[in-house]
Write a protein that binds this DNA or RNA. Sequence first.
DNA 1: CCCTGATTCGC
DNA 2: GCGAATCAGG
Length: 169
Amino acid sequence: MDWSAEAIERLRALWAEGHSTAEIGRRMGVSKNAVVGKAHRLNLPARPSPIRREAVAEKAAAAPVRSTRPAAPAPRSTLAPGPMPAAASPVPAPTPVAAAAMTAPAAATAVVRAFPRLGSARSCCWPIGEPGKADFRFCSAEAMPGKPYCTQHAAVAYVKARDRREDAA
DNA sequence: CCCTGATTCGC
DNA sequence: GCGAATCAGG
């Protein structure tokens, strides 16, 4: 594929319109891999991926020993203060953005799984800030009865996921 | 088995 | 830089 400026522009346009990588590939006569690869290289905004890459990352980390790669995996002497090993958890606590990407129940489940004690607490567990960061916290306003969020955040959390498909042939 | 997108790595 | 191979989730 000759990625001329025009081709890149078209890719950007189609990508921005939310077409699937395969669809873009079909329109431009290239494979979806070429599309996603190029998009990745162009640092185009990643669209919601169905998959989580943790398992792959594990494989990549486990199998190949590149001679250039330092074998030592960053010793951690300083951990996050308090009872919050969340950053290292295989189940990352959802940021508001992540929570918006997943379904609200899933977000709640993820939070509760990461922080079981919050499940029974009645303070809003809407995450504020970035997990692992020092200033990360939860909303902690009074949660709605039977819900993990306060009224405000429940309104944000319990929205119907918009159908993203728009294959305008 | 079809689809999806992301990452890896030989080229 | 490129993209097929490969991964995983729906």
